[in-house]
Design a protein around this nucleic acid. Structure first.
Lengths: 204, 204
DNA sequence: AGGGTTATATACCTGATAGTACATTTGTAA
DNA sequence: TTACAAATGTACTATCAGGTATATAACCCT
């Protein structure tokens, strides 16, 4: 059994950078949503033709899902790293300030593609909508687990309901995405983050 | 100059109820968004043919805008009535509980059409997106004015920044729309409302 | 140099899209 | 009863959607 190389050397080599093309696709989906994005939008942004797109990424839906994966694994993604902060308060802090910085970043479309990519959509986009929903729910679940762990560690008071706290924080973060989409600046979002943190339950 | 009657009696009478048809159109736009809704979706839901739709409502965009107007003037709309409550705290209370009840109401599509109708969209929907953005911003502005008035009335502490408080509350409300879209129940949203109110600045 | 293999560009396919022309129906007013 | 006005149903248009067939171009290995 021979090793399978990741970039097969047989045949004509691909003339474009898949990662760069995927970044471009992500940007278009992020700005226009799944339903609002046409294949022409995509091929123009990616600088390739339709057959290349289909050969490399499958179809529109699979391309979207791959773009979302890229989105979550980018260097500026802040969700998972925030969960690793030592205390519940610091987790919330990093989530809120990370959201403020990233969602209003002028180098990207405003808001969050996980939220606005297919919030309400055609039947053709149902699978995509569900994939996004699952990610949002999953993120909130991870947050809840982190807060439960914090209670056990003693840096979150016993009386706090981890599930409700996670849902509340998720709600604020999701609201910040809408604010950013509305044109709110990073500073304005930081003010919302501060006000949220003022009421955040702390140890002791 | 003779009076112009609202329902002209000349010519063949309209065979459908415009208000009922508009309700149906609203429901489709609400569920599928502007880009995700086709004229076929609309005519099927409204029970009329395309020429009737165009004669009565102009075109897809104008129909959407009229549906939004209906949405804001429905009996269950809670935003404007909430602003008239006597204190800032009660305003927030009614907004939050009104959102919890309405956005998760199983008799309607989940969430809020002002938020999810055209959050990210094609260029063809740009005007619609802007109309929705303006309404969101306008709502927040009204809320800010209400809180400024509350400060003068003395039921909100002097140190509170009305603009930031309005933006924070708007963020939570918008986040609740995403939560509802995600399938959160009215009870779950009420928990978020309660947690938000716990931290709400009160007089004295 | 030639065969195998993969990517590319062009051109195409089928079905759906928003919007409309037209002939017909249904009502009011004279 | 006839003239007029507006709404209706059918059928249509032009364009665009997502997706593909095919011929050609570029590369590796032998």
């Amino acid at each position: 059994m021979t090793a399978v190389s990741c970039t097969p050397t047989i045949g004509r080599p691909r003339a474009f950078d898949m990662d760069a093309a995927l970044e471009k696709a992500l940007e278009v989906f992020w700005r226009k949503g799944y339903d609002g994005t046409s294949l022409t939008d995509l091929t123009e942004a990616m600088g390739i033709n339709k057959p290349s797109l289909y050969a490399a990424f499958g179809n529109k839906e699979q391309l979207f899902l791959k773009a979302i994966e890229l989105y979550e694994s980018r260097p500026c993604a802040f969700f998972i790293p925030a969960l690793e902060k030592p205390t519940a308060y610091q987790v919330a802090e990093h989530l809120l300030y990370g959201a403020a910085m990233n969602m209003a970043d002028k180098n990207n479309p405003q808001g969050c593609v996980i939220i606005q990519g297919a919030l309400s959509c055609s039947e053709a986009a149902a699978a995509v909508k569900e994939a996004l929903m699952n990610r949002r729910v999953d993120g909130e679940h991870k947050l809840r687990q982190r807060f439960e762990q914090a209670k056990q560690a003693g840096d979150l008071p016993e009386h706090v309901d981890a599930e409700v706290l996670a849902r509340y924080l998720g709600t604020v973060l999701q609201g910040m995405a809408i604010q950013a989409n509305n044109g709110a600046s990073a500073d304005q979002l930081r003010q919302v983050a501060e006000m949220t943190l003022l009421a955040f339950p702390r140890a002791g």
